[in-house]
Design a protein around this nucleic acid. Structure first.
Length: 303
DNA sequence: GCATGTCAAGTTGTG
DNA sequence: CACAACTTGACATGC
């Protein structure tokens, strides 16, 4: 059976994740910082519990957790670990309850580190910071029971084959907690499914197939072929395949890259309908867009 | 209250 | 060269 996934935020439901800027946190002394950050973390852990409850209630089967769930965790100056926070135990307990709840409701959780997390950069400081971020997300993934940390290929730096070699090398030496969750996704201007497949195959890393990116940045493969490649990469690991879907904001003329509020059901690859898989829906209207798409395509509720 | 400017980070493409 | 886009606005500030 197919399950659709919500990305990070809600539209209608009153569930909000809090944020902080380093500039403001830096004005506090260290104990003050840890108190403030601890409050934000606990609020966000509570919001994540509410998020899992809410997607279950709506019949949505997956949720992408936003990267700054623990704000500024990996910041070079104000970064911290849970053990340092005065309410660290409480936060850890709340995150564990997310795991229990998502198991109970069979909700799949994932992470998608943002654009600064790259494993193909020739700059060591970029790689170091990316590793730190990936280790943070893996630690969080263990706590809440997320099985996916998904990244893009990153930059090309004028030479794609060298960049792919660096990507391959960096992934191959990742700590197991990260590597066992890491996935690669085709993006909309540099790395296609065709580019990433050899890396995925060599490393036994699954591929997340984003059909919208594929349509923006084609590689000669058909949607059916890219779908099959994605399926195989997951199924040989005995894991549930993962896809991304969105619709272009201004149609396919001009610049189709930014995401529309809703999904045009014509953009849904019909061959996906019969799969056992997760499809993250990237649409500005969030859960409202997912419910609309489920209705239009007569997809069953995930409960 | 509400409008507005700012926020850790990388890379690419557009105007 | 500046700036938007990327998976996503939220928060502090000033009126």
């Amino acid at each position: 059976m197919l399950r659709l996934g919500l990305c990070c935020l809600f539209n209608q439901a009153q569930i909000r994740f809090r944020a902080a800027t380093a500039k403001v946190i830096k004005k506090l002394d260290r104990p003050g910082q840890l108190i403030r950050l601890g409050e934000l973390c606990l609020d966000n852990a509570c919001a994540l519990v509410a998020a899992v409850e809410e997607v279950h209630r709506l019949g949505i089967g997956a949720f992408r957790v936003s990267s700054p769930l623990l704000p500024l965790y990996t910041h070079p100056e104000v970064g911290y670990c849970l053990e340092e926070l005065p309410n660290g135990d409480e936060i850890t307990a709340m995150l564990s309850s997310v795991r229990v709840l998502k198991d109970k409701h069979r909700i799949r959780l994932s992470f998608h580190p943002d654009q600064f997390t790259l494993l193909s950069s020739p700059r060591p400081e970029v790689t170091t910071a990316s590793l730190r971020e990936l280790e943070y997300q893996a630690k969080l993934a263990v706590l809440i029971g997320a099985d996916v940390i998904n990244i893009h290929g990153g930059g090309v730096y004028g030479d794609k084959s060298s960049a792919l070699l660096r990507l391959l090398q960096q992934i191959s030496v990742l700590p197991e907690l990260v590597r066992s969750r890491l996935t690669l996704e085709n993006d909309d201007h540099s790395y296609t499914v065709k580019d990433l497949l050899p890396v995925c195959e060599k490393l036994s890393i699954p591929l997340i197939y984003d059909v919208h990116h594929h349509r923006c940045n084609p590689d000669g493969l058909t949607v059916a072929e890219a779908t099959a490649a994605c399926l195989q990469s997951w199924q040989e690991l005995g894991r549930e395949p993962y896809f991304h879907l969105s619709s272009p904001k201004f149609g396919w003329q001009g610049k189709p890259r930014s995401h529309a509020d809703f999904i045009d059901s014509a953009d849904f690859p019909i061959e996906w309908k019969k799969l056992n898989a997760t499809i993250d829906i990237e649409a500005k209207a969030k859960e409202v867009a997912i419910l609309k798409l489920m209705e239009e395509l007569a997809l069953p509720s995930w409960q």
